[in-house]
């Protein structure tokens, strides 16, 4: 048994202990797992199924239902492009195309160098600033197409280091 899986077992045992006896805890445990790993690794889901004595299918059925849970590791920086109504009307589709072109990446995917993950989200709840892009925790409001490249370059050189 490698060090990693041992850690994972402990981590999950702790989580299960914390939420033990609280009904309907699966989603909350998954939230904590994702906070920890950035996504839900398959070994973690397997381990969780053992610890909770719940079939793996039950766990995956929940993970895949909700948009929030991810099955693959996120890029170093997550770009969340808001596609709420206000942003849509004020040009979010144009920004999306620009980002896709600049980074050569599709929605929901990570760039080959792992620097960026591009997510299209429904509403960030800051419609007054539309159109909005959020990179990690930083929100960029009233973004214009011409600004996109400048914003992305704040996060390092994409593609050049491969």
């Amino acid at each position: 048994m490698t060090e990693n899986t041992k850690n994972m077992q402990e981590e999950i045992a702790n989580l299960v202990e914390k939420w033990k006896g609280k009904e309907g805890n699966l989603i909350m445990i998954l939230h904590e797992l994702q906070n920890y790993y950035g996504y839900i690794p398959r070994p973690a889901a397997l381990e969780l199924s053992r610890a909770l004595e719940t079939p793996l299918a039950r766990i995956y059925e929940v993970i895949t239902f909700y948009n929030f849970f991810k099955l693959s590791p996120p890029g170093k920086h997550t770009i969340a492009l808001c596609m709420g109504t206000a942003c849509y009307l004020k040009g979010a589709p144009v920004l999306l195309n620009e980002i896709k072109n600049l980074l050569n990446v599709e929605e929901g995917q990570t760039t080959k160098d792992g620097l960026f993950q591009l997510d299209v989200v429904r509403c960030l709840g800051c419609c007054g600033l539309a159109p909005v892009i959020k990179i990690d925790e930083k929100v960029y409001g009233k973004v214009q197409k011409s600004q996109v490249m400048g914003i992305l370059s704040e996060y390092g050189n994409h593609n050049q280091e491969g």
């Binding site: 596609m83 709420g84 109504t85 849509y88 429904r122 509403c123 709840g125 419609c127």
Partner: peptide
């Protein structure tokens, strides 16, 4: 669980 795109009253 405010999910409407373009609305943020609850937030």
């Amino acid at each position: 669980d405010e999910g409407d795109p373009g609305a943020y009253m609850d937030r």
